[in-house]
Simulated scan of single mutants.
Amino acid sequence: MAHLVARHHPGSRRRRVSYRRRTQAGFALWLLLATAGISGALGTPSVIERPEARDTGAALVQPGAPAVAPDRLTARFGFCHSGGGRNCVVDGDTFRFEGEKYRIADIDTPETHPARCAEEAVLGEAATRRLRTLLNEGAFTLDEADRDTDVHGRKLRIVTRGGASIGDQLVDEGLARRWEGYRRPWC
């Protein structure tokens, strides 16, 4: 009789079910990892096309695939009001990071020091604020451009996050132009 009481005790049934579920989940995880290891050994491609993206040609990259290097640079950016600072934004295409001055190589933004007209001043301030926001949103990468520095001694870099150019984002938002090798007036 004591055997039946222990067998039908509510806690004992839950433990058995919980143990069974844990072992089934563990087996499922082991099977998934084993299958992934086998498909990797057989040379399964590391890029899988999404069915809903077939028309656009977009693809998903599996974890561990050598697609885009992870973004590792990060800082909290302010504004460089007096021209100095360790991590700050000068204007829409220039900033200081770790004390070094950088110019975003793939764009041109309106001038703010000094602006040549009221429209340029307004757009330049908006580009400056937006660049600060974008840099503060997370880790980024500084990719090399065609030259290392410009005539002002600023390091020329293309700023990316997740492989996408932050400069392109500013262009898409109407706050910058693609760099054409020279400045054009904004007024």
Rank of each mutant, 00 (worst) to 15 (best):
G78W: 02
D150C: 02
A65C: 01
V171K: 08
A25Y: 11
G26S: 06
P51T: 04
P70A: 01
R20M: 10
S18K: 13
R21T: 06
A28D: 00
P185V: 12
V89H: 08
A36D: 02
R130G: 05
S18E: 11
P185K: 14
E137V: 03
R161N: 06
D71Q: 02
D55S: 14
S82L: 06
L33D: 04
D172R: 14
T23N: 15
G162S: 07
A164C: 13
L123R: 15
T160F: 08
G153L: 03
G162V: 05
I166C: 12
S39T: 15
A118V: 14
F27Q: 13
E119H: 10
V68S: 05
V122W: 05
I107M: 00
M1C: 07
H113Y: 07
G43A: 08
G85V: 10
P10L: 02
S82N: 14
W30Y: 06
A59M: 04
L4Q: 06
A75L: 05
R14I: 09
L131W: 10
P66S: 00
P185F: 09
W30E: 07
H81W: 13
G162N: 04
R86E: 11
P45A: 00
E173I: 06
F77T: 00
V159R: 02
L175I: 01
Q62D: 03
R7V: 06
F27A: 11
Y182V: 03
P51V: 07
R184T: 07
H113C: 00
T141G: 08
V159C: 02
L60T: 13
D55Q: 14
Q169T: 11
P45G: 04
H152M: 02
W179T: 08
